[in-house]
Amino acid sequence: MNEIYTLKINGTEHQVKDAWVGESLLYVLRERLGLPGAKGACEQGECGSCTVFLDGSAVCSCLVLAASATESDIATVEGLQPDGSLTDVQQAFIDEGAVQCGFCTPGLVMAVHHLLDENPSPSELEVKEALSGNICRCTGYGRIFAAVDKVIADRNK
């Protein structure tokens, strides 16, 4: 059963054609709409590499049926800063050395933005909890915590 439907992503409407309705949002973003920022590393909701925002909530896009998201506002890493500049979170990742192979990175950037939008001054435990769904195999998370701390400090200045 193939249908045409429309997704609103980063404020722009995208038509999805010839798609099987069982396709995940991750698949549709990457393979059909040319938005490869979200990454697939497990496709079962266990790693967070595919994190996007759905109506302001951080979700694993591999677990969302794209065709069920027609009513939602979807935001991906590509839409964080449409002019190509970096957000404070992205800049903090650079400054604190929080990137290695980069595969988990877009998902983590989304997760950190979400955390700090919801809770501008999270405790150490809250940071850990918020990021515990985003697996990074390279960094050991230490530099990522440092990047989060930096954004918190800068925003609360």
Binding site: R30, L35, T76, E78, L80, L86, F93, V99, G102, V109
Partner: peptide, 21 residues
Amino acid sequence: TRVVRIEDPRFLKGEGTYIAN
């Protein structure tokens, strides 16, 4: 000295060129 990484921006913006891309 602590020189920040040149390669980071593309990863942070989701523009890394992994094979699946």
